[in-house]
Design a binder for these strands. Structure first.
Lengths: 144, 144
DNA sequence: TATAAATAGGATAAAATTATCCGAAATAAA
DNA sequence: TTTATTTCGGATAATTTTATCCTATTTATA
């Protein structure tokens, strides 16, 4: 469904969110350990999230990655997925046709709309805040 | 969502279905031309579909790929996807955790269930027959 | 100002996916 | 039985994705 990079990006964002609640910045090293991902690769993904303004980075000593506490409820999975995997999952044809629309639909065009809308709705209505709170309360986990 | 291999597999199956209606076998060459895919790679995918008994092959002169006309309505997208991409899309964790279930859910476990069920329902309830008929009637297309 | 700590980013490498090529095996028809 | 045709399957190559390494740049503090 999502690329590895996107999976890491989502999990990293959640971990950053948790720490941002407590005013703490985190490093790629801490993040990678917590979400069980390769550190350097994770760092690249964090850079992408910074470029897309999903998270914020502070260079230099005492720096790290953080998210504005007040924005947590407005950041949703959709933004993270788009930042890393692009919007292909939103707009791309399910069967890979370059041109696929109402006037020239691929064989699964209509069938896919339902699925895609469900996914879209989920991504757009799931905030980093709720995901972070679930982790904090022990209701969900970032690694196996 | 699906791999390229799977996209080709679905489109190829539909084209074979159309021809099987008329008792015609088709070659990888014809298929690749019709679905706009690399021929040799497509042939590999066809082999996989044969091994999984989704389609049938006849070797030698006057051979080719075909599907039993009477089975067309019972073959659904789910079978094709499972044959090529495996059942990761059904059972795999949305965030890639090795272990992710009700007792130890990833952050999006619950949210994903809805999306996955919608996809599953779509794949299991879409038959090759209906997809083939749509192509025949000009309601949908195999390439751009 | 010097130093240590931290992210940024380029260059590579490894692994997986996608794609190509070619000979072997099977089969219908001449 | 020979030939032409066609799928099968192994080897290899190209591309993309995933992953690593190293240096430059930034910045807080001593």
């Amino acid at each position: 469904m999502f690329s590895k990079a996107c999976e890491y990006g989502i999990k990293a964002s959640i971990f950053i969110a948790i720490n941002s609640y407590e005013g703490k910045r985190v490093s790629p090293k801490e993040i990678a350990k917590e979400i069980n991902s390769p550190q350097a690769f994770t760092a690249k993904i964090l850079q992408a999230l910074v470029r897309h303004k999903v998270i914020n980075s502070v260079k230099g000593a005492y720096g790290g990655f953080e998210i504005n506490k007040n924005e947590l409820k407005y950041i949703n999975l959709s933004q993270i997925v788009k930042a890393i995997d692009g919007d292909n999952i939103y707009n791309g044809c399910g069967l890979g046709l370059d041109k696929c629309d109402e006037n020239h639909p691929c064989p699964v065009h209509e069938k896919f709309i339902t699925v895609r809308d469900e996914l879209k709705h989920m991504l757009e209505n799931t905030s980093l805040e709720e995901l972070a709170l679930d982790i904090k309360s022990g209701a969900s986990f970032l690694k196996a």
